[in-house]
């Protein structure tokens, strides 16, 4: 490497690392940059149209995943805001059925415009079904992020109630987008 770069010793580098290696992760830092032309209709910006199901059943993460609970099964996907940010999704890598995840684990990866984006599971549980249609047609996520473009279904665990209470309601999620 060039002489003119200021080279420091490995010990100095260790010091810098120990300073920047994260101990805690402030959640407020997780926001995506705002969309320059966010639709005025707030409902639309989250992927809900007039014909959409009951909004109150949806809960959100600040990393733009949604979960809808039906009995002891949660259906999970990404929000319309997320798909708009990502652009055309060309590949969707889903977990195997029966994989167990803890809340916050990376459960899927989607690829768009040469970027591989990790997706984080909003709740702990075992995968009981994955949306196989996305393997052949990942663009369904762009077309219908909160309905046909769902990613996985998980069977909830006994800690589900506590975990769900930590998620964002639709109103709170929309506030994070501003």
């Amino acid at each position: 490497m060039s002489q003119s770069l200021i080279l420091k010793s490995a010990r100095d580098a260790t010091r810098v690392f120990s300073k920047i290696v994260q101990k805690t992760l402030p959640i407020s830092k997780n926001k995506l940059p705002p969309v320059p032309h966010l639709p005025h209709n707030v409902l639309r910006s989250c992927g809900f149209h007039n014909s959409a199901p009951n909004y109150s059943k949806f809960l959100f993460t600040d990393s733009h995943e949604w979960i809808k609970i039906d009995g002891d099964v949660g259906t999970i996907g990404i929000t319309n805001y997320a798909q708009e940010q990502l652009g055309d999704i060309v590949f969707c890598e889903l977990p195997e059925v029966a994989t167990e995840f803890s809340k916050g684990d990376i459960f899927a990866t989607v690829e768009s415009v040469k970027a591989a984006s990790d997706l984080y599971i909003p709740i702990s549980g075992e995968v009981v079904e994955v949306n196989e249609k996305l393997v052949d047609t990942p663009a369904i996520i762009n077309e219908s992020p909160t309905e046909d473009g769902w990613l996985v279904m998980v069977k909830l665990t006994s800690s589900a109630d506590d975990e769900l209470s930590e998620l964002l309601t639709q109103t709170d999620y929309e506030k994070t987008l501003n």
């Binding site: 997780n30 970027a115 591989a116 984006s117 990790d118 984080y120």
Partner: peptide
């Protein structure tokens, strides 16, 4: 050529 990896943080 470019590519990237995106996580929540």
């Amino acid at each position: 050529g470019s590519s990237s990896k995106l996580g929540r943080r």
